[in-house]
Amino acid sequence: GVTLFVALYDYEARTEDDLSFHKGEKFQILNSSEGDWWEARSLTTGETGYIPSNYVAPVDS
Rank of each mutant, 00 (worst) to 15 (best):
T48G: 08
R41E: 14
F5H: 13
V6N: 06
V6Q: 10
D18F: 12
K23G: 04
S53L: 05
K23P: 02
W37C: 14
S32N: 09
D18K: 14
D10G: 07
A40Q: 00
Y55F: 08
V56T: 06
E34C: 07
Y55V: 08
T45R: 09
F27M: 12
Y55R: 14
S42G: 05
T44S: 13
L8G: 10
G1H: 07
R41M: 12
E25V: 05
D36F: 04
A7S: 07
W38N: 03
S53Y: 14
N31E: 08
G1N: 08
T15L: 14
R41C: 11
T3A: 05
L30V: 14
Y11D: 01
V6T: 10
L8Q: 12
G24K: 04
S32D: 10
S33C: 07
T44D: 15
L30W: 03
Y11F: 13
N54C: 10
W38T: 11
T15P: 03
K26I: 04
D18T: 11
R41D: 02
Y9P: 00
K26L: 04
T15A: 07
P58D: 10
D36S: 07
T3F: 05
E47T: 10
Y55P: 00
W37Q: 12
T48P: 03
V2Y: 14
G46K: 11
S42E: 10
S32F: 06
V59Y: 13
K26C: 03
L4M: 15
P58R: 07
R14Q: 04
D36H: 08
G24C: 03
N31G: 06
D18C: 10
A13N: 04
A57S: 11
E12L: 08
A40I: 01
R14Y: 10
G24Y: 02
F21L: 07
A57G: 13
T15F: 12
L30P: 08
G35V: 12
G24A: 06
I29R: 13
Y9H: 15
T48A: 12
S61F: 07
E25L: 01
L4T: 15
T45G: 06
R14E: 14
G1C: 12
I51N: 00
Y9R: 15
A57I: 08
N54H: 07
F27Q: 00
Y11S: 04
G46C: 06
S53M: 10
D36G: 04
K26M: 09
K23D: 03
P58G: 09
H22P: 10
G35N: 08
W38H: 07
F27W: 01
L4C: 10
S20N: 10
E34I: 04
E34H: 08
P58F: 03
G49P: 00
E39G: 05
E25S: 04
T48H: 12
A7R: 01
I29V: 14
G49E: 00
Y9E: 13
D60P: 10
R14N: 10
T44R: 10
W37M: 15
P58L: 08
L43N: 11
P52M: 09
S20L: 02
G1E: 15
Y55Q: 13
P58S: 09
V2S: 15
K26F: 04
S20K: 06
G49A: 02
W38Q: 10
S33Q: 13
L8M: 15
